[in-house]
């Protein structure tokens, strides 16, 4: 009779599938972390292409590509993207496992969002910073690297952290290509006894703990990195 109760079932599922669920947590964290880091690195490049001043022909062609990329990726669901990438690569003869495909999808997706985040961060840096750097003789790339990006990234820290937290939850859609992350692990565990509500309650609690912990850690990092750079209004 004990197992008939809600918490009883939860206890039983967790007990029986603890390894699989733990593994799911690991996969979810791996996907979010790799996705955010890879996305951030590529977004640095893409936002440079998007915001470069007096851009040459090559840069302007690349900009068209980046704009199209951002529009398409942000305008379509990650679940659809995951299926397209997974099966189209298979059709091309690349036999990759669901996890590799999932990492690819979430990285591609995060790149698009972070490109826009960084573009905003770059545009929030006063143009005087750019002019001053160019005036001491730094080239366009040096100016971005040493003066603009350090400030733009600092200004964007909150949004970048937010993207990581969104990724923790949104990678659940990668179950469609068979990635066994938190949601999928819990679902499979619950399915054995047809206990969906119990299984999803477990998943919900895990997601909540993951997102809360991450936002706590991210806040600590933000404090370490320092307050966003803003001119104090009366600093003259």
């Amino acid at each position: 009779m004990f197992y008939a109760s809600f918490f009883g079932w939860i206890g039983r599922i967790v007990g029986e599938y603890s390894l699989q669920i733990l593994r799911g947590i690991g996969i979810t964290l791996l996907l979010s972390l790799v996705g955010t880091v890879v996305g951030f690195i590529i977004a640095c490049l893409f936002s440079y292409i998007k915001t470069k001043k007096d851009a040459g022909v090559v840069c302007r062609i690349l900009r068209v590509f980046v704009n199209a990329y951002v529009t398409v990726i942000r305008g379509t669901p990650m679940m659809v993207q995951a299926l397209i990438f997974y099966y189209s690569f298979k059709l091309m003869g690349i036999n990759w496992d669901p996890l590799a495909s999932g990492l690819f999808t979430v990285s591609v997706n995060t790149t698009a969002y972070l490109t826009e985040v960084l573009r905003g961060g770059i545009e929030s840096v006063d143009n005087g910073q750019y002019e001053a750097a160019r005036s001491v003789g730094m080239g366009s790339f040096q100016t971005m690297l040493f003066v603009i990006y350090p400030q733009a990234i600092k200004n964007s820290m909150a949004a970048i952290g937010n993207e990581f937290i969104v990724n923790i939850k949104d990678t659940s859609v990668l179950n469609v290509i068979g990635v066994i992350e938190v949601y999928n692990a819990c679902l499979m565990a619950g399915n054995k006894y047809f206990k969906v509500v119990e299984a999803m309650s477990i998943a919900a609690v895990i997601y909540l703990v993951l997102t809360l912990t991450s936002s706590y850690i991210l806040k600590a990092i933000e404090r370490r990195v320092g307050s966003p750079i803003k001119e104090i209004a009366s600093s003259n």
């Binding site: 005087g128 910073q129 002019e131 001053a132 001491v136 600092k154 750079i229």
Partner: peptide
């Protein structure tokens, strides 16, 4: 530009650097 010194109305010191780094980065 490296041979011409420029001083702006709004200072435009590099906010991500301290005073001496502002003077050494160039």
């Amino acid at each position: 530009r490296s041979r011409i010194g420029m001083v702006f109305q709004s200072f435009n010191l590099f906010n991500n650097m301290n005073v001496i780094q502002n003077c050494t980065v160039g």
